[in-house]
Amino acid sequence: MNNDDNYFKVIGKLKSSKPVLSDKEELINGVMQKIRGTEQKTTVHKKLSNYLFGWADVVWIRGAMALAATFLIGIFIIQQVVITDRINSLEKQLVKTVNTLQVQEPDLGIMQKVFLNVVAKDQMADDSITVSRSDLEEMLDSYLELKKDYDEMKENRGVESYIQNKIRQNLEKENDDKLDL
């Protein structure tokens, strides 16, 4: 008898000999008992979840809740848009207010200037300074006036020689004081 024959004989024998289930009824009863236990647990769970969330099965409540949720989401979106818009407009108003303050009250106290610097800091670059148009015009007028006075003084030589003499005398006096020491 060769090896293959032995193999097929063993397999054939095992195939024809089916294992027999003894105590079949006991096994079936065991299964049924366990599934009844599972069912009871499931029933309690179902009752509890029906009590808590059963309203979600009512069609009109579900529809109303969905509608309310959509409404709330809509309000939230609108609120976000409005708030962003208002923040932007407030920022613009702040810049305008700062400029207005500079025009109307050029002689601000030190605390007000500090406050303005803090508030308007974001609006300015680090190496820049904000000058109002009225200040600039005032500064230019002062400059032109000074220049005009200086030119007039330059034309009047008597004044020039008087100034030079005064400067010379001051220098000599300073030299004498140094020698005395």
């Binding site: 294992p19 027999v20 289930l21 079949k24 096994l27 049924m32």
Partner: peptide, 9 residues
């Protein structure tokens, strides 16, 4: 279960 218990076992 009755029909398939033998097969399953």
């Amino acid at each position: 279960v009755d029909n398939y218990a033998d097969f399953a076992f």
